[in-house]
Write a protein that binds this DNA or RNA. Structure first.
Length: 332
DNA sequence: CGAGGTGA
DNA sequence: TCACCTCGG
């Protein structure tokens, strides 16, 4: 797995929740995060992604179709937030990820030639790439399904966090802890729908800060010490040590002074990425009934999906129509 | 990953 | 009903 997001697992203490608690709630999904998961995991045993006859990757279409429809069936209103332009500081991270992908590609091909199927898959999951084609296709599918998406100016997680802060969404859905740095009051992890065994984790920013007895600004300072997508962090400092240091010295500037360490990026610049990010505020969230013919034409006509399967997934949208008092509750 | 089938 | 497995495109 290519490293993504800040490593905060040890300090955030998530609470476990049920899908019922998300009923009638708007969940702002980090599109890049979720699509990447689909590209990585929806594969054949040897690691080959799902493809149509023309060789176009279709794993993400499968994921988006089934994930979205089952969330909707559970009464959850999903919206997808796409990344805009990345901060220049993210380039290092992106370069590193690309290196890992290229290396994994070679190892995968080797393993495949030598018939080591399990190894091939292991490496294949690390080769997933988010191309403009993948993004555009995903947007098109969402549009046909009547599910709103928002194009962020910068980081998708920042935009999603802003929307929760504003009350336009209830939580951010992402695997990355970065959204709490961006100020999301609530985030939910493991928003998967496999069988009945859910493992939903909710992280409440306010509770996290109270428990750790620090401010959000200090949490961001901890992240900078630990390392984010925008900086390397200090060698040997993990979440717990970082937290201890920030609490002890108040902020990252004091820590740097006391420990006589160097960061390659000014802390203030990194702080601003999380605390003063640009957001889009003139969006509107409007769900529409799915364009069934359109989805079928796109998935089945263009990408070789099975029509009965697509139709039965789209059927789940109807269940909501009946459950709600009025259509306008949902599609207003 | 998620759907759908299988068998106990 | 459920744990497990295979396949999707």
């Amino acid at each position: 797995m290519v490293k993504m997001g800040v490593k905060f697992r040890d300090i955030v203490s998530p609470e476990s929740i049920k899908f019922e608690q998300l009923e009638n709630k708007i969940v702002a999904l980090d599109a890049a995060n979720i699509i990447y998961q689909f590209l990585s995991s929806i594969r054949q045993v040897d690691g080959t992604p799902l493809m149509d006859q023309n060789g176009n990757i279709t794993s993400h279409f499968s994921g988006i179709l089934y994930r979205t429809s089952s969330l909707i069936e559970k009464g959850i209103k999903p919206i997808y937030i796409f990344d805009g332009t990345s901060d220049i500081l993210k380039k290092d991270t992106q370069d590193k990820r690309r290196e890992v992908k290229e290396e994994s590609q070679k190892k995968m091909e080797e393993a495949l030639e030598e018939g080591r199927i399990e190894d091939a898959r292991k490496y294949a999951v690390r080769t997933s790439r988010m191309s403009p084609k993948i993004i555009d296709g995903s947007k098109k599918l969402l549009e046909l399904m009547g599910v709103p998406y928002i194009q962020a100016d910068g980081e998708g997680e920042a935009q999603a966090s802003y929307m929760v802060e504003k009350g336009d969404a209830w939580c951010v859905g992402s695997q990355d802890y970065d959204c709490i740095l961006f100020g999301a009051p609530r985030m939910v992890r493991n928003l998967t729908v496999t069988g009945g065994k859910a493992n939903l984790e909710m992280i409440d920013l306010k509770k996290v800060l109270e428990k750790l007895e620090i401010s959000r600004e200090q949490l961001v300072d901890v992240a900078i010490l630990v390392g984010t997508d925008f900086n390397r962090g200090v060698k040997g400092i993990g979440a717990k040590t970082g937290l201890k240091l920030i609490k002890e010295h108040g902020n990252i500037l004091n820590v740097i002074k006391k420990l006589d360490i160097q960061l390659e990026v000014e802390p203030e610049i990194l702080r601003n990425i999380f605390l003063k990010h640009d957001v889009v505020s003139d969006y509107q969230l409007k769900w529409k009934s799915p364009n069934i013919e359109g989805v079928v034409a796109f998935l089945c006509g263009e990408h070789d999906f099975s029509e009965p399967r697509v139709l039965s997934a789209l059927d789940k949208f109807k269940k909501i129509d009946n459950k709600q008092k009025s259509l306008t509750d949902w599609f207003g």
